[in-house]
Write a protein that binds this DNA or RNA. Structure first.
Length: 558
RNA sequence: UGGGGCGUGGUGCAAUGGCAGCACAUCAGCCUUUGGAGCUGAGUAUCUAGGUUCGAAUCCUGGCGCCCCAGCCA
C-alpha cells in the first residue's frame, strides 16, 4: 500500500521541520521509531510511528527503526519480531533496523569522556538514599557524599561496575549537574545502573551495566544522525537534559520536538494493564478483536488504510486530547464501504415459507457485489420456497415507524420478489417459529410492474442453499471511557463486548472464504473471516456495524 | 505550594493582527432495491478580566482551569 499521500496538512512539527531546512540547521531529514520491545504495538504507538514516518517521507528523508533495548529485565525478542510485522502491515518503511544495544560500546566511551571532564560520577548511595536526597517538587535535593570523588576513582569504579564486580543496586553512574534544579530531571540523573540478570537478548552477558533512557536515547539519536527526535509531551522536561549531554560531549545535536500522545475513548493503552487483561484471561490473548493492539484490530477486520486515515484526521498538537472512538469507526466504515464485497447473511434466522412459490423451483438471481465499485461485478444467489430472514426484520406487532415485515405488510426481498406476510406460526410457548408469506411473481428482480412501492427491502438466504456460520459480534470492551484510570479491570468489562451468534446462515458464496477476507453483510455491518475460520466451521468477526438509523429511532422510542 | 506544557462548538484539529472554518458526533430534510452509501441544511465555540490596536482566537498583563515531573522504567 502507499501511505505516502502528500495531502497531510501542516502542523507545528511540520512547520518546525520546514524552518530547520530553510534555516540550514539541517540539510536533510532523518527520524526514528524508538519502540521498547516489551509489548505489542497498539493504536497509541501508531500515531507516533506515523508522524515519524510521514515527516521523513514528506521531506525525502529516511527513518530508522531503533529498538530501545536498554533494560533486559523487561524486553523480549518476541516483541522485536511482532513490532516489525505490525509496523510493516501499517505500510511503514524504514532505512534500517538498529538497536540501542548496538551502541553500548560507543556510549560507554562517551560516558568515560564525561567522567574525565568531571561531569559524571559514581554514586554509592542506596536507591532509597538517592531518592530521598533528590528533594521534592518544592525543595531542592542535596548533593551525594560521593559527588566529589576524583576522576581516577570514578573511572576505576565505573570499570568495575561494568565488569560485574558489584551487585545490582549498589552503585550508579550519575551526571553531575545541579541537585537544586527546579526541573527534577536535571538533579544528577542516573546514567548507568547495574543489572546482572537476565542476559540481554542481543548482547548476552557482555554488559553488567545498562544505560538509562536519558543517557541512551539522545546519544543514539546523535550517533545515527537523527535530525528530529519526535516524542510525546512527557519528555518535554527531559529536553534540557537531552541537550545538556550533547552539549557537554560536543556531538551532533538533533532537535527533540514533543507532541501530545493519543488518548482514545474506551481503549486501553497502558502496557501494564493490557498485559494484566491478557494474563487474567479477561480477553482472549493479545489479538482479541476487542483490543486496540494492531494485531487485534487487524483480526477484527480494521484495515491499515483506515487506521492511517484516522491518524491523519486527528492531527498533531500539544493539547491533552481525547479522541472519540466513533471517529475511528467512521474511518473504518469509510474504507470498508469502498472496498468490501456485499453479501447476504442472516445472524439470527427466522424461517419464512413462501406459500405460493413452487415447491421445487430454484431460481438464480443476480446480486451486485459492490454498488460503490461497478468493477466488482455481480454474483448469483439461489432463491427458493423456504428462506431465512433476520428475526429483527419481522415484528408481529410493529412499533411506530417500523416498516419492515409484519402481518399484512409487503416488503422487497433484495434482488428477488415482493412478499406479503400472511400468517405466523408459534410453538407451545408462544415463540414465533416460522412465518408464511405470498410472493408476487411479477416483481422478479425487485421491481413491480404496476409501479407500486414498498417501504422496505430486507435481505434473506435460501434455507437449502445457505451455509451455517458462527458470527461474533463485538462492541467496545469497556463500560467506561477511560479504562486506563481504573484498576479493577473485571468491573469495567462490558458484558456484551462479545456476543457469539452460533446459528447464523450465510449465502453459499461465502463457503470458500479464507481468514482475513472482508465483507459487508448487507444492512448489518462489516465482517471479516476470523483466523480460526475453516470450511467446516465458518467464523466471522463483526468489524463494525453499519450506521443504523432504525436503531436510533427505536432507542428514542424507549 | 517549584518547574514545564496546554486552554477555539459535544470531541479533535484549523485560522500565524483582517468575515472563526473542517472532520467526527448530534438534529432536520432529500434520495435510495442496504433504514447502508450519497446529497442538503441546522444548532452549538475562542477559559476569564483588563490593556494595545481602526481591528485580537492571535500581541501584552493579571487571574482561573487542566496535564506532566520526586524510577537504578521508557
Amino acid at each position: 500500500m502507499d501511505i505516502n499521500a502528500q495531502n497531510t496538512s501542516s502542523d507545528f512539527i511540520r512547520d518546525a521541520v520546514a524552518d530547520d531546512l530553510r534555516s540550514g540547521r539541517f540539510n536533510y531529514i532523518r527520524t526514528r521509531l524508538p519502540p521498547e520491545p516489551n509489548g505489542y504495538l497498539h493504536i497509541g504507538h501508531v500515531k507516533a510511528f506515523l508522524i515519524d514516518y510521514f515527516i521523513a517521507a514528506e521531506n525525502n528523508g529516511d527513518l530508522i527503526l531503533r529498538f530501545d533495548d536498554t533494560n533486559p529485565a523487561k524486553e523480549e525478542v518476541e516483541f522485536v519480531d511482532a513490532i516489525q510485522q505490525d509496523a510493516k502491515w501499517l505500510g511503514i518503511n524504514w532505512l534500517k533496523i538498529t538497536y540501542a544495544s548496538d551502541y553500548f560500546g560507543l556510549l560507554y566511551e562517551w560516558a568515560i569522556k564525561l567522567v574525565k571532564m568531571g561531569k559524571a560520577y559514581v554514586d554509592d548511595q542506596t536507591p532509597e538514599e538517592v531518592s530521598k536526597n533528590r528533594g521534592t517538587l518544592t525543595e531542592p535535593g542535596i548533593n551525594s557524599p560521593y559527588r566529589e570523588r576524583s576522576v581516577e576513582e570514578n573511572l576505576d569504579l565505573l570499570a568495575r561496575m561494568k565488569s560485574g564486580e558489584f551487585p545490582d543496586g549498589t552503585r550508579i553512574l550519575r551526571a553531575k549537574i545541579d541537585m537544586s534544579d527546579p526541573n527534577m530531571v536535571m538533579r544528577d540523573p542516573a546514567m548507568y545502573r547495574i543489572i546482572h540478570e537476565p542476559a540481554h537478548h542481543r548482547t548476552g552477558r557482555e554488559w553488567c551495566i545498562y544505560p538509562m533512557y536519558d543517557w541512551s536515547h539522545g546519544q543514539n539519536d546523535s550517533m545515527e544522525g537523527i535530525t528530529h527526535s519526535l516524542c510525546s509531551m512527557e519528555y518535554e522536561i527531559h529536553r534540557p537534559l537531552y541537550e545538556w549531554f550533547l552539549d557537554q560531549l560536543g556531538e551532533f545535536k538533533p532537535r527533540q520536538i514533543e507532541f501530545s500522545r493519543l488518548n482514545l475513548s474506551y481503549a486501553m493503552m497502558s502496557k501494564r494493564k493490557l498485559r494484566k487483561l491478557v494474563e487474567s484471561n479477561l480477553v482472549d490473548g493479545w489479538d482479541d478483536p476487542r483490543l486496540t493492539t494492531l494485531r487485534a484490530m487487524r483480526r477484527r477486520g480494521y484495515t491499515a488504510e483506515a487506521i492511517v486515515d484516522f491518524i491523519k484526521k486527528i492531527g498533531v498538537a500539544k493539547n491533552t486530547s481525547w479522541i472519540d472512538y466513533a471517529l475511528l469507526e467512521s474511518c473504518v466504515r469509510d474504507d470498508l464501504n469502498k472496498r468490501s464485497l456485499r453479501r447476504m447473511a442472516i445472524i439470527e434466522p427466522l424461517k419464512m415459507i413462501i406459500d405460493n412459490y413452487p415447491d421445487d423451483l430454484v431460481e438464480e438471481l443476480a446480486a451486485i457485489n459492490n454498488p460503490e465499485d461497478p468493477d466488482a461485478g455481480t454474483r448469483t444467489v439461489n432463491f427458493s420456497k423456504v428462506i431465512y430472514i433476520e428475526q429483527d426484520d419481522f415484528r408481529e406487532t410493529p412499533p411506530p415507524k417500523y416498516y419492515r415485515l409484519f402481518p399484512g405488510n409487503e416488503v422487497r426481498l433484495r434482488y428477488a420478489y415482493f412478499v406479503r406476510c400472511e400468517s405466523v406460526v408459534k410453538d407451545a410457548d408462544g415463540n414465533i417459529v416460522e412465518i408464511h408469506c405470498t410472493y408476487d411473481p411479477t416483481t422478479k428482480g425487485g421491481d413491480s410492474a404496476d409501479g407500486r412501492k414498498v417501504k422496505s427491502t430486507i435481505h434473506w438466504v435460501s434455507a437449502a442453499h445457505s451455509l451455517p456460520a458462527e458470527v461474533r459480534e463485538y462492541e467496545r470492551l469497556f463500560t467506561i471511557e477511560n479504562p486506563d484510570d481504573n484498576e479493577e479491570l473485571s468491573s469495567i468489562i462490558n458484558p456484551t463486548s462479545l456476543v457469539v451468534k452460533p446459528s447464523s446462515r450465510v449465502e453459499a458464496s461465502l463457503g470458500n472464504t479464507t481468514p482475513g477476507d472482508k465483507f459487508q453483510f448487507e444492512r448489518i455491518g462489516y465482517f471479516c473471516t476470523d483466523l480460526t475460520s475453516t470450511k467446516e466451521k465458518l467464523v466471522f468477526n463483526r468489524t463494525v456495524t453499519l450506521k443504523d438509523s432504525w436503531a436510533k429511532i427505536e432507542k428514542k422510542q424507549g
